[in-house]
Amino acid sequence: MAVYDNHHIARYLSGELTPEEEAEFMDRLETDAELAAEVEQVRKALDTLRERLPENPQEQALRANLKEMNERHFKTAGTRVISMKKYFAAAVAAAVIICVIVLWPTQNYMDKWGTIAMVSPQERGGKSNHLQKASAHFNRREYALALPWLNRAVDADSSSHMALFYRGIAEFHIGDKEAARRDLVKVFEGTSVFKYEAAFFMAVGYAAEKDEKNALFWLDKIPENSSTAEKAKKLRAEL
């Protein structure tokens, strides 16, 4: 039985075989499953090359767009480890800056005021499975993991101000300020027990951005007789 090498397969796929050679090779493909699989593998590879060798401006545009999005959403992307020897002076300077930041009274309002525990639904007498799962992550400060469960809770009951409130906080922590504010404003406009807490976190969000004016605007909305008043007072003093 003839043994067909790579060159013979190449000639077959290029249409270079004589009619007799081609007929013989095709007969063999009928009975030799291994050879048929090899030819199929090469055919698929050639299809891939045919598709992907021509430049695709659409793909290039998408890549450029994704690169930009990556820089926004994966902030440290592109950083490189630098040589300590070469950049010793820079490293010392950086260390001094870090020390100053650490020793200076903290201005990171979100870290200081933004970390709260999520009341689990059992404690509140609720039955929401989504909220239970969300609270497990939320209380471990795994906000990105809590978020999908909070989304589901809101999808299941869009009137749940509890889900909206904690989703707003989680969104703040993962840096999605726009969505966070949307949720918290909705909670503030309602009449739930989270109303003034939502105002407080709006203030914390602005304080974290050093936007004193808006932070005070939201603190002003918290009445003195509410349970949030005490910490609102402390935040106001810090501002």
Binding site: H73, F74, T76, A77, E142, P148
Partner: peptide, 24 residues
């Protein structure tokens, strides 16, 4: 999805850069 993928990869022996590359 970005935050979830970042968290998953950085907790699984990867860096922020790995997460960005995999996402893209």
């Amino acid at each position: 999805f970005a935050a979830r993928i970042k968290l998953y990869i950085t907790r699984n022996n990867g860096s922020d850069e790995d997460a960005a590359d995999i996402f893209q």
